[in-house]
Design a binder for these strands. Structure first.
Length: 510
RNA sequence: GCCGGAGUAGCUCAGUUGGUCAGAGCAGCGGAAUCAUAAUCCGCGUGUCGGGGGUUCAAGUCCCUCCUCCGGCACCA
């Protein structure tokens, strides 16, 4: 049995879960479920990032302590994930005691290795907003993008990580492993970025300004800035580091038994630099192995404009879920977006994808189960399931190729293609005609058994993307669970008592 | 400015290393069937594969150039 450890970013706890969070998390969930279906022992990690100035301010504004606000937001995220059928194994919070200790241990390791030094940080600071803004945020006008007020260039004491030392090693790593950053376009961007001299990374902020954070072990007047704090969650959850052990035995250099390194870090393309540059160099600095793969996905846009709160065109995945069900939302997101690229959300496309699920797959299940009930008393006949063999084999191969290669849209298209083929098979075989001819009973048996077997295959292929309805389909077929991939296509369906039930994907009147 | 993508049927897009690659789904039109959620199946596309040039026996598929759109160019979760 293989092992697979995958992560989403931890989402910043100052805002409500939105479609960006949902897409990343659903993508991760689909891959996690696929790996489980392929027989792997999976660790699927997600969580929230709870430190920093925004949390501190948002809590104060609501009359809460920072931790009270974080508790509230953790509940919001977990509830959202529950409603979307997310099967994470671990929900990490950066305020957990273990994480605080691991961050401290990592920082001490970096310092012991001689990669940390003290210097002045220079940046554009807005006095009214009490925070720094990036060059990009302030724009050429040099005003703070929130209130439009002035920004000034100021200096303050920070601790820095000698990221620049690792530039060459990182470039060699990326060039030596072409699939390490996917898709290739993002890899090229990172390499382009690394074509210029890499600067060092500021890793702390004065506690006088931001108190809600993890104090540096050697300088309690400074708190850990977001990068080290947030990214380290991946190591914390892996169990690789034991902060309570003596410094030489904590797991750096010599890994303890753990899930590290991660097999896959998933994220939106906006934080590729953080994951493909900051994080690996930090790991190098701490003598930890790098994650095996980094996959940055694209953005959902609405029509041809970017989704944004200010425009008011944000699509709420939970509202869609209320109307169509979690599986339909998941199907749309996975099937419609070419993994890695941007895609456009439109209500029309959503409905088309939902119709596909309902008419091609849902109706296939319903008509098949109805015929087994009508013609064979609800029991799958014991006959050779010798139809659709070519189509099934082709679908399985394309499906695995798509999911293994992180082209989920292609993999799931192959699954839906099999459902289309099964509908065609019904038309060709005309079971209703066979049922009228007593001497064709064995042909009808073979037809119905083939269809039942194909539905069992489909329940397995669709499980990662539509877990609830696929499990229900398996139950309707009289199976006690959704089959694993290695059990396909030979699933023992003969003799099973089926149940027709209500349509799997009911018609939704809009 | 530098770097990198994309431009294929009305719409959304597939098209690995050049040779059934001119395709799929949706929409539209016509037909079949009745097991089924007015669901399904079959048939129908004269598309300059953004423009131009080049390499080759052969190019959406490689090279050059032009046009249009988009993305990246660090302390932003």
């Amino acid at each position: 049995m293989g092992s697979f450890y995958l992560t989403t970013p931890i989402y910043y706890a100052s805002g409500e879960p939105h479609i960006g969070h949902a897409y990343t998390t659903i993508l991760a969930d689909v891959l996690a479920r696929y790996r489980r279906r392929a027989g792997d022992d999976v660790l699927f990690l997600t969580g929230i990032d709870e430190h920093g100035q925004k949390i501190q301010e948002a809590a104060a504004a609501q009359g809460l302590s920072p931790l009270e606000l974080c508790d509230l937001m953790a509940g919001r995220f977990e509830a959202a994930w529950d409603e979307l059928g997310i099967s994470h194994d671990r929900f990490i919070r950066t305020t957990e005691r273990e994480h605080l200790a691991v961050v401290g241990a990592l920082l001490e390791r970096l310092r012991a290795n001689g990669h940390i030094y003290e210097a002045e940080y220079t940046g554009w600071y807005s006095v009214s907003q009490e925070r720094y803004f990036t060059e990009k945020e302030i724009g050429p006008e040099r005003v703070d993008p929130i209130a439009g007020g002035p920004v000034v260039k100021i200096r303050e004491k920070n601790w820095f990580f000698r990221m620049s030392r690792f530039q060459e090693r990182l470039v060699r790593h990326i060039e030596g492993d072409p699939g390490w950053i996917a898709p290739a376009a993002r890899r090229n961007e990172v390499l382009g970025f690394l074509g210029r001299p890499l600067e060092d990374l500021s890793i702390s902020r004065p506690r006088s300004r931001i108190h809600w954070g993890i104090p540096l072990p050697w300088d309690p007047d400074q708190v850990t800035y977001v990068w080290v704090d947030a990214l380290t969650n991946y190591v914390t959850a892996s169990g690789a580091i034991d902060p309570a052990a003596p410094a030489a035995e904590r797991g750096f250099g010599e890994l303890r038994p753990s899930r590290w390194p991660a097999d896959l870090h998933l994220m939106g393309k906006d934080i590729i630099t953080t994951h493909a540059v900051y994080w690996p160099t930090l790991l190098m600095g701490a003598d930890l192995p790098l994650p095996r793969k980094i996959l940055a996905h694209g953005w959902w846009v609405v029509g041809d404009t970017k989704m944004s709160k200010s425009i008011g065109n944000v699509v709420d995945p939970l509202a869609l879920r209320d109307q169509f069900g979690a599986d339909a939302v998941r199907w749309y997101l996975m099937r419609e977006m070419s993994t890695g690229q941007d895609a456009s959300y439109t209500a029309e496309r959503f409905l088309t994808r939902h119709d596909e699920l309902r008419n091609i797959l849902g109706n296939l299940a319903h008509r098949t189960l109805s015929m087994i009930r009508r013609y064979r008393g609800g029991v799958v006949p014991s006959a050779p399931a010798d139809g659709l063999e070519t189509e099934t084999a082709a679908a399985l191969e394309a499906y695995r190729r798509g999911l293994d290669g992180y082209r989920l849209h292609e993999g799931f298209a192959a699954a839906m293609e099999l459902a289309r083929a099964a509908n065609g098979y019904i038309e060709t075989r005309e079971p209703w005609a066979l049922a009228r001819q007593l001497d064709r009973a064995s042909d009808l048996d073979a037809t119905l058994t083939t269809l039942a077997r194909t539905l069992a295959v489909l329940s397995s292929l669709f499980e990662p993307v539509a877990p609830k309805r696929s499990a229900e389909l398996a139950r309707r077929l009289g199976l006690d669970r959704v089959p694993l991939l290695r059990e396909l296509p030979e699933v023992a369906v003969a003799g099973r008592q089926v149940r027709v039930g209500k349509p799997l994907f009911p018609r939704v009147d809009v």
